[in-house]
């Protein structure tokens, strides 16, 4: 996830008095503190809680993982079963992300530009994966794709089950990042392009997609991060078969349950690193967009 505050556009004071911004508010670039006694106390308490809850525990994961040095990392990752889980998770996450990029963008398009009966319902249903407990999500999918499937498919405990579960929980990300951008997009630009003789395909390729690309990228990054870290929806659905349907989260959990916290921490820190990379990438994308806008 990107930083909650998008980078403020700091306006440097122009040289000429004419071009100067009215100096009303202190520019955000000023690093000095404007905390009062009360707000400093509030910040202090909030930071203690945030440290106890998030920072110190995550540091503990990294520290525990680091105790064994590189050898531990390598030995954990070299383990065949772990490596199989890693490749499965990354492969499925990439697959689902690609799926979301296409289908998510289409759904966003349909929600914004199309009109039909029941569109409002579709709009609400998109959010169901956000609101549904993950374990229930697994159970829900099992009812259609499991042993008693009315469709006659039996995907439970297969790789398809992993794809299904990940697709379910990550569906809203691309839709919900692309949708507002598409809504804000000015139709004039498309009309201007059309009046200049551009054909539909050209408008799509040269006007629409470039404007949507940052939002699609952001949504893709979010769904990739979520897919990599998914656990709850897979528990009932994938059967957690080693080498076949076991994902990284399950592997970490197995380590924990076996009391092997060192290996759990090593693998968990790899997942943390991926999450961090995604956050940084997202922040960069968003900042580039902010600068352009």
């Amino acid at each position: 996830m990107t930083s909650v505050l998008t980078a403020p556009a700091v306006e440097p004071p122009a040289a000429s008095p004419r071009g100067r911004r009215r100096a009303r508010r202190s520019p955000r670039s000023a690093p000095r503190s404007t905390l009062t006694r009360g707000s400093a106390l509030g910040l202090g308490i909030a930071m203690v809680w945030f440290s106890l809850l998030v920072l110190i525990p995550l540091t503990a994961v990294v520290a525990t993982a680091g105790e064994g040095g590189w050898d531990r990392y390598l030995s954990v990752l070299r383990n065949d079963q772990t490596w199989a889980a890693v490749t499965l998770t990354v492969g499925q996450a990439l697959l689902v992300t690609a799926l979301n990029v296409v289908v998510g963008t289409v759904i966003a398009w349909v929600l914004v530009r199309d009109r039909f009966w029941g569109k409002a319902a579709l709009d609400v249903v998109i959010d169901v994966p956000f609101a549904l407990p993950t374990i229930v999500a697994g159970l829900v999918l099992l009812s259609l794709y499991g042993p008693n499937s009315p469709l006659g498919v039996h995907w439970a405990f297969t790789e398809h089950a992993v794809t299904l579960a990940l697709a379910f929980v990550t569906l809203p990300f691309v839709v919900r990042t692309v949708q507002p951008v598409l809504e804000e997009l000015e139709v004039d630009v498309e009309e201007a392009a059309a009046s200049l003789g551009a054909r539909r395909g050209t408008i799509l390729r040269r006007i629409l997609l470039p404007s949507l690309a940052p939002a699609i990228a952001a949504g893709a990054a979010l769904s990739f991060a979520r897919a990599i870290s998914e656990y709850g929806s897979l528990v009932l659905l994938s059967g957690n078969r080693p080498y076949e349907t076991e994902v990284v989260s399950v592997r970490v959990l197995t380590f924990i349950e076996n009391g092997n916290t060192a290996s759990a921490a090593a693998l968990a820190s790899v997942m943390l690193a991926i999450a961090l990379v995604v956050i940084v990438a997202l922040d960069l994308v968003q900042r580039r967009v902010a600068r352009r806008g």
């Binding site: 996830m1 990107t2 930083s3 909650v4 505050l5 202190s26 955000r28 000023a30 690093p31 000095r32 503190s33 404007t34 905390l35 707000s39 910040l43 930071m47 945030f50 998030v54 920072l55 525990p57 995550l58 994961v61 993950t134 991060a225 979520r226 990599i228 870290s229 998914e230 656990y231 709850g232 990284v248 989260s249 399950v250 970490v252 959990l253 924990i256 916290t261 759990a264 921490a265 968990a268 997942m271 943390l272 999450a275 961090l276 995604v278 956050i279 922040d283």
Partner: peptide, 26 residues
Amino acid sequence: YEFPGKRVLSALIDLPLSVSPVVVGL
């Protein structure tokens, strides 16, 4: 308010959304 480390904090606040529940537990 303005205070040193504000940008870092605002980025860290979002971290929990990207961390696997299993890692949180661990």
